[in-house]
């Protein structure tokens, strides 16, 4: 099997695994973890788009006489993944904070056990 295909496959299966977790999870922490898995999957996918077998790092050094782009690994996906990871981190952190608040307000971190309250003040 081609390595690229394998990577694609891995990415998608991670996303689906995570999605399954989101769909079935009742515990908010678990849902957030499942989201993390999804993000990992999609990051893998992104990296794979820039993957080339036998590529060299996309860094121009003085020894290059001419630019031979085809041999470079594509640098853009890596930049994207970096951003994506950072965002994923931010989201996870924020959601954990929200879960803490959720726990303070409702006394639980399960989703099903909370009814929407009717009281609104602003």
């Amino acid at each position: 099997m081609n390595l690229t295909v394998l990577l694609y496959f891995g990415g998608f299966s991670l996303i689906l695994t995570g999605f399954y977790g989101v769909l079935t999870g009742k515990n908010l922490i678990r849902v957030i973890l499942a989201l993390g898995i999804m993000e990992a999957g999609v990051n893998l996918l992104l990296v794979t788009t820039g993957f080339k077998p036998k590529a060299i790092p996309p860094i121009i050094v003085k020894s290059f006489k001419t630019l031979s782009l085809p041999n470079f690994a594509d640098p853009l996906p890596q930049a994207l993944v970096l951003t994506s990871i950072v965002i994923g981190f931010g989201i996870t952190a924020l959601s954990l904070a929200l879960i803490v608040k959720y726990n303070e307000e409702n006394g639980t971190i399960k989703m099903d056990e909370v009814e929407n309250s009717e009281e609104v003040v602003e």
Partner: peptide, 12 residues
């Protein structure tokens, strides 16, 4: 809308 734990399912 208000139902819990159906968030993902709604996307599907």
């Amino acid at each position: 809308f208000q139902g819990h734990s159906a968030w993902g399912w709604q996307l599907v």
